[in-house]
């Protein structure tokens, strides 16, 4: 019996060690170069802000430098919410509302609880000419399944694994040590596991797919099909900054679904996906 208890303790320690496993660090070889790019971007952005009122042209040039520097870091493979936030700021300062919103949305995917990010996204959205309100059902879903929409996928995965480990540890302990007890704790852990597991399962397939997008051009005609020969879907064209979900991609056309539930097709060169 003593040997059984020792093996259980070792198993628990092992599980906890795996559950708290961290993410791989970014490759050190390019880190110095990336740090230089980030510093350049931050300095250029500050310079642009200082010149904004006195010399708008120079300010715009500085913002462009900042945008390109941040973009270089992103292109090097760094996925970071704050980095996307800074890049979005540079875009918005340059009047590129569509790309700005796209970057804010990318950041939101990684850091959905960042209030500073949400505030700037709200401001960027306020600059758009078309305000398409989400349907009531969408808002209700966001409230009901808050964990799905408000907790980053990484955190959901970590929490889910911890709950999963706790669930199995309780079951194992019930079988080997306690012979019953902690049943409610196991049920609670199982509910957490299922909630987070379903949420992760729904999102994981789309994680590396461009499931959403934003218009980056003005006067975009949304058509009924994937071709210029199709009639316009709406009585007016849409402008930069309109966000949508991607339903399908076909050739150079993208089937989009707007927040109010309307759908249509737009050219891929008029959008930025994220």
């Amino acid at each position: 019996m003593q040997s059984t208890g020792q093996s259980m303790r070792m198993a628990i320690v092992t599980l906890l060690a795996i559950a708290t496993w961290g993410t791989p660090a970014h490759a050190d070889s390019t880190r110095e170069s990336l740090m230089r790019d980030v510093s350049t971007g931050l300095q250029a952005y500050d310079r642009g802000t200082a010149l904004l009122n006195s010399d708008p042209d120079s300010a715009a040039a500085a913002y462009r430098e900042a945008r390109d520097a941040f973009q270089a870091v992103v292109d090097a493979g760094v996925e970071n919410g704050k980095l996307y936030y800074n890049l979005g700021n540079a875009h918005v300062r340059l009047g590129e509302i569509g790309p700005g919103i796209a970057d804010y949305r990318r950041a939101l995917k990684l850091t959905p609880t960042d209030e500073q990010l949400k505030a700037n996204l709200r401001f960027a959205r306020s600059l758009t000419r078309d305000r398409i309100q989400p349907s009531g059902a969408t808002a209700a879903l966001h409230t009901m399944f808050f964990w799905h929409f408000n907790i980053p996928l990484r955190q959901r995965l970590t929490l889910g694994l911890i709950a999963y480990s706790v669930f199995w540890l309780i079951l194992i302990a019930r079988v080997v040590i306690w012979r019953g007890g902690f049943g409610y704790a196991a049920v609670c852990a199982l509910i957490v596991v299922l909630s987070l597991g379903i949420s992760i399962g729904l999102e994981l397939p789309d994680y590396n797919r461009h499931a959403n997008g934003v218009l980056v051009a003005d006067d975009v005609t949304v058509r009924k099909g994937n071709g210029e020969g199709y009639e316009p879907q709406f009585d007016r064209s849409l402008n930069e900054g309109v966000e949508f979900a991607v339903v399908e991609q076909r050739g150079g056309w993208i089937h989009i679904e707007l927040p109010d539930g309307h759908t249509g097709w737009v050219r891929d060169r008029e959008v930025e996906l994220f």
Partner: peptide
């Protein structure tokens, strides 16, 4: 902007 360079380069 966020200015923590290490934080900006931490891959998520």
């Amino acid at each position: 902007n966020y200015e923590d360079v290490d934080g900006l380069l931490t891959s998520q």
